[in-house]
Nucleic acid binder design. Structure first.
Lengths: 195, 195
DNA sequence: TGTACATCAGTGAACGCGCGTTCACTGATGTAC
DNA sequence: TGTACATCAGTGAACGCGCGTTCACTGATGTAC
């Protein structure tokens, strides 16, 4: 039981990695099997030795993207908390950071795909549900213990929606929307605590 | 200068109507020119007598969908306000109504397309920006006059995000998220006013 | 240690299919005299 | 009022192209003796 990966497992991981970025950049329909294989340094013919179908690959890609998201978000929050930020403001400032407007490719999978998720086949759709649930859970963990269940859902919805709107508006208008949302979201949260 | 429409203008309006519903149901890539023409009772060959390109039709379809949205949302709010609701709670309850989870087809164009908007060509993208701006403006109009600019943006983001997440989760989980978001959103708004 | 064979991972041509777009044509409606 | 022609709106076949998927094949790596 060695932990070393076989050549095939390495290729597989590379394909999933490439796909995880590609779907966020271009959408579920935006990149083809051949594009992804090429970007992974392979030819398209070998694809079906790795996945039973394109949809099966999408499922793995979403899972991968989601795990990366949670890890890097948790890390960015840690850094802010060590500098004295509250968990909630650390979450909001990390997730709604200006640089995330442009970097869809390695940004939040939920924000990148949300409106397309409902149109996918069962397997992909189910993975989408898990991604949403995982994100709500992470938000919940950044809230005070006595926060009611609705708060995590509201905050998640607000962050996902704001990032999408900021990306659509783009430029100054986008950054402005993001900044105002960060400020309002944190201010409201503080007010709730202190009221 | 009669207001009567020519036969061609009637066909044109029918195509745009069908397309406005089709893109919300199936996404920008989800339906083809031939599908839309067929649903409008025509054959695909005639398409280019009505539009210079598929993208040009998408622009008209989005505009149409957006106008329909604003009109029916304003109407639903009116009804609630006449029954004694505040403009804000009327907005939230109308927009985040449970029935909107299933009815993407004639629901909000922004919620239906948000994550795909950033990936469209300039003409479509610009219309998307206008749809977002129009929606923020409508939300603004439901807020008290002294509400700061960020509040309308935050509320819009929350509503758009919540509807998308509810649609992804679907079923009981979706309705639950929507209900909690409605409640929290209205409760927070009241708290801000009374604090 | 060397040879013979099996398995593994990937190649690249080919398939069927659906799409956006073009175009020669048709039948209905409108206009001129 | 009737005939001849022009314009309008739509038809349906065809085009090139890209996609997901299949498959016979190849070269490299591993195994048996």
């Amino acid at each position: 039981m060695s932990t070393a990966l076989t050549k095939k497992e390495l290729s597989h991981a590379r394909i999933v990695d490439v796909a995880a970025r590609a779907i966020r950049r271009a959408g579920y329909h935006g990149v083809g099997v051949a594009d992804i294989m090429k970007e992974a340094g392979l030819t398209h013919g070998g694809f079906y030795a790795h996945f039973p179908s394109r949809d099966a690959m999408l499922v793995e890609a979403m899972q991968r993207a989601g795990q990366d998201n949670l890890a890097s978000l948790a890390e960015a929050m840690e850094r802010r908390i060590r500098k004295g930020a509250t968990p909630f403001s650390a979450l909001v400032e990390a997730y709604l950071h200006d640089t995330h407007i442009g970097k869809t490719e390695d940004g939040c999978i939920v924000a990148a795909m949300a409106s397309e998720m409902t149109r996918q086949e069962d397997a992909v759709r189910n993975e989408a549900r898990r991604r949403v649930a995982a994100m709500v859970a992470l938000v919940q963990s950044a809230l005070p213990d006595d926060a009611n269940a609705g708060e995590a859902q509201l905050v998640t919805a607000t962050m996902v929606g704001a990032l999408q709107l900021a990306r659509t508006l783009d430029g100054k208008a986008g950054r402005d929307l993001l900044a105002k949302t960060r400020k309002e979201l944190i201010a409201r949260h503080d007010r709730i605590i202190h009221c």
